[in-house]
């Protein structure tokens, strides 16, 4: 049984169709990243899966349960990291993490969780005195202290500096190694590429592409752009056999090719190309 199974999910707010007939599956132990512009329907989709909102139509199963009827036993198997939280400001990191462990039947050790998210030195600090990145790590600590089978991460690293983001990725990889299924929403393409087994691009309420990060869109076609300087001018060419092209180029120019670069489309290039043609879609 898949951890998440969505068939024909549709959600409207008045006249606005926020999510339009979406279908996807997430296997157990998999990390799926939802990418898409603001307002694409990512948060609505996750909130339906988390049970905060009810779908207008479609069939949704999360850990085998329809979220509309998900009881406390079901919730005990989930970890939810919401987008913006400013609560718990008057408690310390340690108090908050310990308190949240109380809600769950078989929680992780709160002290280990605090260490794992890198807040060991801040355990006695009041939560309203944490920096933005530290606060986000607290949210993650509260999301994982219950030892969830399925973890929802909604834009977890917004406001992190690059070093903190890399530490955070290492933490999520540990959770993945433990077999935690993860549904990640993010705006950072490098984050999706590093953490996700598969990426689903949502725009205008629909999934327009869903594949492994290395295979998304035309990335697997092997198309590469070769650029170099010839006769003092910048030249470039697109090819599906860059090695042969470069060899030929070297022969023609008689050795070292000036300013040679071979560029494969990054996930970001592919993503931007995917959403650029959509009406109203802005990256």
């Amino acid at each position: 049984m898949n951890a998440i199974s969505v068939r024909g999910l549709t959600k409207r707010y008045g006249d606005l169709v926020a999510v339009n007939d979406i279908s996807f599956e997430v296997e157990r132990g998999e990390c799926l990243a939802l990418l898409g512009p603001n307002g694409a329907g990512k948060t609505t989709t996750t909130e339906v899966l988390e049970g905060f909102r009810h779908a207008d139509s479609g069939e949704v199963r999360v850990l085998g349960v329809d979220p509309r009827h998900g009881g406390l036993d079901w919730k005990a198997r989930l970890g939810i990291v919401l987008q913006t939280d400013r609560d718990l400001g008057d408690l310390t990191v340690r108090e908050a993490v310990r308190h949240f462990a109380d809600y769950f039947p078989s929680p992780r050790d709160p002290e280990e969780v605090i260490e794992a998210v890198g807040l060991g030195a801040k355990a006695k600090s009041r939560n309203d005195r944490l920096s933005g990145g530290q606060r986000r790590r607290l949210d993650v600590a509260l999301g994982i202290v219950g030892n969830p089978e399925l973890l929802f991460l909604d834009e977890p690293t917004t406001g992190f500096d690059p070093a903190a983001r890399r530490e955070f990725w290492a933490l999520i990889e540990l959770l993945k190694a433990d077999g935690t299924t993860i549904l990640l929403t993010t705006h950072y393409l490098d984050e999706a590429e590093r953490l996700a087994d598969r990426v689903a691009v949502i725009a205008g309420g629909r999934i327009i592409a869903c594949d492994r990060p290395s295979q998304l869109g035309d990335r697997s076609d092997g198309i590469a752009r070769v650029s170099w300087i010839e006769d003092g001018r910048e030249r470039q060419s697109t090819t599906d056999s860059p090695t042969a092209y470069v060899l030929e180029l070297a022969q023609r120019l008689g050795g070292e090719v000036p300013q040679l670069s071979v560029h494969r489309p990054t996930l970001e290039d592919t993503y931007l190309a995917l959403i650029e043609d959509l009406p109203g879609g802005e990256p």
Binding site: R86, D87, L88, Y103, F104, L142
Partner: peptide
């Protein structure tokens, strides 16, 4: 205030009666 700052939403996602 709890409704604004995310307290109540967070509690709804927890296995708490």
């Amino acid at each position: 205030m709890e409704r604004d700052d995310g307290t109540l939403k967070r509690l709804q996602g927890l296995p708490m009666p």
